[in-house]
């Protein structure tokens, strides 16, 4: 009987541990849909537990140390983050610590134990992570690799395409202005408790203005939890080109609330999410421009 019992136990996947990016993408190309890239496995673990099919071959990225590096190119004004960088690196990595807004975003994800294993790349590639709208607001680019070569794509464009998981995300490139005086970047997460909870919503934005206070660029994004990440393009258009002192707060509020396609579940209504997103964006803008 014992032999038969063994055949009944849950099938265990094979875990492959390539040591180079080339080998990793080769394995993926070989196994196709039967193989899956896995980094920290914090989100996947949860999904497997909730019924997502476990792949026959797990291609563990753990040994790809080259994807854990972080560099800041002063000349280009570009931060490059390796996809396997743990979410918790904001506490330890010298370069990341210099960008408080990125640290704030990373710190809002999950809990310390999970941030030690979960990776920045995994948060993006899971397609539901809090970083997607945030990085969209920052106009980040993703660097992918497959057996044919390397390609770069804006995160927002990537998100709108159907996912192609044959590509391995290797780096995230974030343009960061050196002159922070004329721009404001923000990220806020609202959850049902202070920490370690799915977001009710997140709002992110980057606003740039000139010396006269005219807004010359604005990227606003919402998402988090079950909300599909989205850019608030109507709201962006509403404020770009305006002088900050002429912003119409009521219209901004109603435009955000109208534009945000917010999720609804047993715990939080869609209309609440819309209102809070709009409140937070108005408050962020007011913190820069409102003359009391």
């Amino acid at each position: 009987m014992s032999n038969q019992v063994d055949t009944l136990s849950a099938e265990s996947p094979v875990i492959l541990m390539p040591t180079s990016i080339e080998k990793a993408v080769e394995l993926k190309s070989h196994y196709g849909l039967n193989g899956e890239f896995v980094s920290g496995a914090t989100l996947l673990q949860l999904q497997w537990l909730n019924g997502r099919k476990t792949p026959e071959q797990i291609i563990s990225l753990e040994q790809l140390t080259e994807l854990k590096s972080i560099q800041f190119d002063q000349h280009k004004g570009e931060l490059s983050i390796g996809a396997l960088t743990p979410l918790g690196s904001y506490q330890t990595h010298k370069i990341l610590k210099e960008f408080p807004i990125i640290c704030t975003a990373l710190k809002s994800i999950a809990a310390p134990g999970i941030r030690n294993r979960g990776t920045i790349g995994g948060n993006i590639m899971g397609r539901v992570g809090d970083l997607i709208p945030f990085l969209s607001a920052l106009s980040a680019k993703l660097v992918f690799q497959d057996v044919k070569g390397v390609k770069q794509i804006e995160i927002w464009d990537w998100f709108q395409q159907t996912s192609n998981s044959d590509f391995l995300l290797s780096h995230i490139l974030i343009p960061l202005d050196r002159d922070m005086l004329e721009s404001h970047t923000f990220y806020r997460k609202v959850g049902r408790r202070e920490t370690f909870t799915a977001a009710i919503l997140t709002v992110s934005g980057k606003i740039k203005w000139d010396e006269e206070g005219k807004i010359i660029n604005a990227k606003l994004a919402v998402g988090g939890g079950d909300n599909k990440p989205m850019r608030l393009e109507k709201t962006e258009q509403l404020i770009i080109g305006r002088n900050a002192i002429h912003l119409d707060w009521k219209t901004i509020f109603s435009t955000v609330a109208e534009e945000f396609v917010a999720a609804e579940d047993a715990f939080v209504s869609s209309s609440y999410r819309k209102k809070v997103a709009a409140n937070l964006i108005v408050a962020e803008l007011q913190s820069q421009f409102a003359k009391e």
Binding site: A111, R192, R193, E194, T195, F196, A198, A266
Partner: peptide
């Protein structure tokens, strides 16, 4: 406990 939320240390 993903949707039944109890306070954690930060709360």
């Amino acid at each position: 406990f993903d949707t039944y939320l109890m306070p954690n240390i930060v709360d």
